[in-house]
Design a binder for these strands. Structure first.
Length: 616
RNA sequence: GCCCAUGUAGCUCAGUCGGCAGAGCACAUCCUUGGUAAGGAUGAGGUCACCAGUUCGAUUCUGGUCAUGGGCUCCA
């Protein structure tokens, strides 16, 4: 069996369904079911990286005996370990720690599991001067705990672990950051070191390359390079300035969004940016959302608040007159800009801002129409996201939490509608039991980008709270008053975040239909300027976004400038083209498509633009 | 908000152990009219993030503020 496990490159085993150390098979009875856990599984990675974090802690203790160790779990893509060292780690420290870790790995010490009573362990760690471990122990309910030892370094740990330190084939320390003890800002700030490990050097290298690629695609970097947007300290943190190039992309997204909503039965509304305090009291925002709202302003003795959400306004429009079941479902859509207070430390480019535009809509629907409506919404979501070039989605359905408004029947009915709708839309989904907001169940959709990263954009949420608070009604067939169901939904989420994600997904090279400049006209020499101008106006007249480069530069220089700006197509014109009323067409990837007549060029481009072709 | 780091020309970054600051790219002008990722010359650009303090003198030292980055926490 030892051999088999070795052959399978097991990092640990599962015995009777429970993860165990490899060494634990020595004391097994005949016939026990043993499964190998390998690095390929999530569980295997976790064990592997957890062991790496122990080795890192050992290295830190070797180099800084005064350091106190806190916790060091595996996380997605790696691990971390928190230390209390009384100062910050420097990059030099990290290099030294890596070196020390290499030494420990080379020593290939066995990692040995030991059981002790809780009291023994507490005494042991107290004596060792490890108060954090003692505190952790106090929270463990069991009487017996396990510790793991490798060449003298002992750590409290449930395990399992790799059999020996030599099994760690490739690791890298990635970053240093402050982190509160147990994630609570009232506690002491510890020093956290992040790292990752893999079971072969190539995979580590691939992962590091992935991190490089992530850096290259960073929307903040590309946003600057492509002149899409900026943030100014004179304006304030988290408040976005859209430059012409970014604004053009945004407009294209919004135009498309509006057209699709119109086709899908939505009505457009507009609402103000501020509203009276009484409105927010009625909606409940001043009760449960106040910490995210900007402080009030006083106008002629009345309090006003900047809106953090659009819903109360849409509800007011609904309530402006008596509604009949014949009016339902009503779908009010608005690209509504909202402002939410975010703590300064969490702001991040376009992905986390203080002012953003939701592609919001509120749907008011009779209970009997609710399921059909949700099915339609999810289908709409998927079609919309596909157009932007996303193919893989996962949905998360969040159900009733402990504290909630609305009766169980409503929750059950709405949750069931979400399930059915997800099935019909062909969405794989996971249940997030008890994860709903207090006012209703919801379904969030995560999309996978070009690098395989997941982003949450779309959300469809039931709201049992506001129809009640605003006393919303409609007259049914029975001539009685009924309460409508209300659904909040956003497909892109926030335009800012969606845009930031698109920049990263496409690495700034947008598909033709979204590109702010679709074609650049490059002249070989100045005598082609007139032809370039007439060509540009012919393209412009057909709605193609075009620029000319008439500089007295060589063609290589103009191609370079056009390529750096990631303009999808360049047309090159010289004597030959001018005399034949033609162009030479070139893709931004360097591919030369060949000579085109002017009309041929226009129909070639329009075909791709109008079909919103993702691949350019 | 908290911890740490950072803030010098439009961008990327040097530099000043306290004595009125520099490169490359971009920009402007001129020369060049060249066929697929950088032709050449010249020039203009900075209250060294902001506000105080120490000092004969602060971009440099000290304190504060703001912003940005990496985290903690939270979310669209």
């Amino acid at each position: 069996m030892q051999k088999q496990l070795k052959k399978a490159k097991a990092v640990a085993v599962r015995i009777n369904g429970l993860p165990r150390d490899l060494t634990s098979i020595d004391s097994l009875e005949e016939g026990t079911l043993v499964e190998a856990i390998t690095f390929d599984s999530e569980e295997g990675k976790e064990i592997y990286r957890h062991s790496t974090s122990h080795v890192m802690a050992h290295a830190v203790k070797n180099l800084f005996p005064e350091a106190k160790v806190a916790i060091g779990p595996a996380i997605e893509d790696g691990f971390y370990y928190d230390f209390d060292i009384g100062r910050t780690f420097t990059p030099e420290d990290i290099a030294a720690i890596e070196k020390e870790m290499e030494k420990l790995v080379r020593q290939n010490s066995p990692i040995v599991r030991k059981e002790m009573s809780k009291q023994e362990a507490a005494d042991f760690f107290t004596e060792k001067g490890e108060p954090y471990k003692v505190e952790l122990l106090a929270a463990i309910p069991d009487e017996t705990v396990t510790v793991y030892e490798e060449s003298g370094f002992v750590d409290l740990c449930r395990g399992p672990h790799l059999a020996s330190t030599g099994r760690i084939a490739a690791f890298k320390l990635l970053s240093i950051a402050g982190a509160y003890w147990r994630g609570d800002e009232k506690n002491k700030m510890l020093q956290r070191i992040y790292g990752t490990s893999f079971n072969n050097p190539k995979d580590l290298k691939d992962y590091l390359n992935f991190l490089e690629e992530v850096k290259k695609r960073d929307h903040r970097k590309l946003g600057k390079e492509l002149d899409l947007f900026s943030l100014s300290e004179n304006v304030g943190g988290g408040l976005v300035l859209w430059h012409p190039m970014g604004a053009l992309i945004r407009k294209t997204i919004e135009d498309f969004w509006r057209d699709e909503h119109q086709k899908n039965g939505y009505d457009f509304v507009y609402s103000p940016h501020v509203g009276r305090a009484t409105l927010w009291e009625t909606s409940g925002h001043l009760g449960f959302y106040k910490e995210n709202m900007y402080s009030s302003m006083e106008v002629e003795g009345q309090e006003f608040y900047v809106k953090p959400m659009n819903c109360p306004f849409h509800i007011e429009i609904y309530k402006n007159r008596l509604r009949s079941y014949r009016d339902l479902p009503m779908r009010y859509a608005e690209l509504g800009t909202v402002y939410r207070f975010e703590r300064s430390g969490v702001l991040h480019g376009l992905l986390r801002v203080r002012g953003f535009t939701q592609d919001d809509a509120h749907i008011f629907v009779a209970p009997e129409g609710m399921e059909q409506e949700v099915i339609q919404v999810l289908g709409f979501v998927v079609r919309m996201l596909r157009t932007f070039g996303f193919e893989e989605f996962t949905a998360y359905i969040a159900t009733k939490p402990e504290k909630a408004v609305g009766d169980d029947r409503m929750w059950e009915q709405a949750t069931q509608a979400l399930r059915i709708a997800a099935d019909k839309a062909g969405l794989a989904y996971e249940m997030d039991e008890g994860g709903g907001a207090f006012y209703g169940p919801k379904i969030d959709i995560k999309i996978k980008d070009a690098l395989g990263r997941l982003w949450q954009c779309s959300t469809v949420q039931f709201d049992f709270n506001e129809p009640e608070r605003f006393d919303m009604n409609y007259i049914g067939v029975d001539n009685q008053q009924h309460r409508p169901y209300m659904i909040h939904r956003a497909l892109l989420g926030s335009i800012e975040r969606f845009f930031g994600m698109l920049v990263e997904h496409y690495a700034g090279a947008f598909p033709l239909w979204l590109s702010p400049v679709q074609v650049s006209v490059l002249t070989i020499s100045e005598r082609h300027a007139d032809y370039a101008r007439s060509l540009a106006s012919a393209l412009g007249a057909r709605g193609v976004r075009v620029e000319t480069d008439l500089d007295s530069e060589k063609i290589g220089n103009k191609i370079r400038k056009s390529t750096i700006r990631k303009i999808p197509y360049s047309v090159i014109i010289g004597d030959k083209e001018a005399s034949e009323n033609a162009v030479m067409l070139r893709r931004r990837n360097g591919e030369n498509i060949g000579p085109f007549g002017v009309d041929e060029l226009i129909s070639f481009l329009l075909e791709k633009i109008n079909s919103r072709e993702v691949r350019t």
